[in-house]
Design a protein around this nucleic acid. Structure first.
Lengths: 342, 342
DNA sequence: GTGAAAGCGCTAACAG
DNA sequence: CTGTTAGCGCTTTCAC
């Protein structure tokens, strides 16, 4: 590479190769109607000068910027990260670049970001947020496609992708039933979280389908914390002393539950099986014993968001609230009693 | 806003306002030499049409894109996130947009991203990564400024910003000494981590300065896990049964230590004080008792990286490895025994 | 096969 | 004060 003043333009390359800019352009873009010799000379000239095509100029001409915006309200929390990663997967390393915009739940910041994205002529926007809270559409008449992930738009004409929390709850219960548990309690987060309610609904439905009910007869709503997990165990043991499993609304609650069960002398999983939700590795793996938990497959959700956005950019838009499958990650905390190693 | 075909251009605005594009441009950009009436008519026309200036065209002309790249090798781990947030703080919501590039420690991905960023004419690049591992410069003769944060460049001509781990270690020890502890052990992560070694060095130095040595006489290197924290406590209690404090190389180790101390009947902080490192809220706050810990102020580090990058873009580059201060977050795990509530 | 010219949207410079 | 012109870097006609 030769060090000169300012970025190298295609005109510089053309001059060095002894051709016109138009010809250089064709050669570099593999257009046909160029002799092999010329093509080679242009390639070499570009190489020598370290030529990088100016994407701004290209975008101006083509009307596409090969750029998308990613607006997250979640302060980039632990749920947004895998979604973002998945989206990047779908968009490819360097093919389409992602503008990161953290709105931090601030409407004004969001507007600023939206304007900035529109000015930069992004090809589309992904909106992601905390759990699957319903939210206002990001803007009206945007003329570019938008996909919501995790958070979902209140406008059903928009495409929103969210994990199927209800099915996730059912998954947890069916697993416990399948490993011989019958008296199952449920401790979860605050009732105002849609996710908590949906998971509980899925759990209760799965129990009902098996002709059973919830141990302690009702879902214990509380906080998303270990502290609440510990207290939840105390409450459950009082109302349902014979319980043999607890499904927890997230991994922190489950971890608190595991600690408490150990403290009161109940063995996990021998006496009581435990299933969490989120598959948050630091928690689930550090739990004693390691935690069986429901994974929302957020990375795949992010990837799906990226793919759906690309499809929309190519003229194949989608719409509606779409549920993506959760899956179960089985670890030690729910091992059936029969198969315990000696 | 009027819905038409394709984005609204300044020519559309000019036509509606009955002026030339040049005049419209001046009016919209607050250039003087425009009558108040014209200015108003142009503003209104722009408003009516929902005009958004095309940043690609502007960038083509000005040579600046008001865009920076952020390359992270860390798979966006927990350390990168606050750095990214801080950088966004410095760059302002929408003023300068950030391209997110996760290289995932893949050299090829990194090259793709770098090329893509250069083609898009970013004004600068921030490189961030895991802890403060030394790394190769991202490229040569880039002609745009680069700032390294957390990870640092092996080329001293580059500007690298990293937390002062050594001072952080000293901070922890001085706090423990200041609250009356004298027999202090140190359990930390793998020796191959520079951060582990630096923190240990700072700790030992602070002890030496007080005429003391490490309880158990040497730093216990191991893993960054709770499991190792528990084992570390066992080892320390064997070699230094009378110890009254443990400084742990990260919060997970500290949390494991807290659990183990409780299990063996040592009260925290009454009998043994505990200090962690990272101030990772989920761990530090959920710990029983809540954990005193060293905070690397990563968000400020990210902000500093953003500011230094802007300065470099404006022609004021920096260089060298610069250490940014850690601070101590005091919680219950290190409360002096005297002041315990009844 | 190759070159010249026009134009993407915008702004700076210069006329009027 | 306002309009015209030129050009940022690139690609795409359309001549030759």
């Amino acid at each position: 590479m030769v060090t000169g003043q300012g970025p190298v333009t295609i005109t510089d390359v053309a001059r060095l190769a002894g051709v016109s800019p138009g010809t250089a352009s064709k050669a570099l873009n593999g257009r046909r109607g160029i002799s092999a010799g010329t093509a080679l000379r242009v390639q070499q000239a570009a190489e020598r000068l370290g030529y990088q095509p100016n994407a701004l100029a290209r975008g101006l001409l083509s009307g596409r910027s090969f750029t998308v915006g990613l607006i997250t309200t979640d302060s980039f929390g632990r749920f947004s990260i895998p979604v973002v990663q998945g989206a990047e997967d779908a968009l490819g390393p360097g093919r389409i670049l992602v503008f990161l915009c953290e709105s931090r739940d601030d409407r004004l910041r969001e507007e600023h970001y939206l304007r900035a994205l529109l000015e930069r002529r992004v090809d589309g926007i992904i909106v992601t947020g905390r759990r699957q809270d319903r939210r206002e559409p990001i803007g009206r008449d945007l003329r570019i496609p938008v996909v919501y992930a995790m958070a979902y738009s209140s406008d059903p004409a928009d495409l929103s992708l969210v994990p199927d929390d209800e099915e996730g709850g059912a998954l947890a219960i069916r697993h416990l039933l399948g490993t011989g548990r019958t008296t199952i309690g449920h401790v979860t987060g605050p009732r105002r979280f849609r996710a908590a309610v949906l998971r509980a609904a899925g759990a209760e439905q799965a129990l009902t389908a098996a002709g059973l009910g919830l141990a302690g007869s009702r879902t214990l709503y509380g906080e998303w914390t270990e502290e609440w997990g510990r207290r939840g165990v105390d409450l459950l043991l009082r109302s349902a002393p014979g319980l043999d499993a607890i499904f927890c609304g997230n991994d922190q609650i489950a971890r608190g539950a595991a600690d408490r069960l150990r403290e009161v002398g109940r063995r996990v999983p021998a006496d009581v099986a435990l299933v969490g939700f989120d598959n948050w590795d630091v928690i689930a793996a550090a739990c004693r014993p390691p935690l069986t938990t429901v994974d929302m497959n957020l990375r795949q959700l992010g990837r799906a968001a990226g793919e759906r956005l690309l499809a929309a950019v190519d003229g194949h838009p989608g719409s509606g609230l779409q549920l993506l499958p959760c899956s179960l990650v089985v670890r030690e905390s729910s091992r059936p009693p029969e198969s315990r190693s000696p």
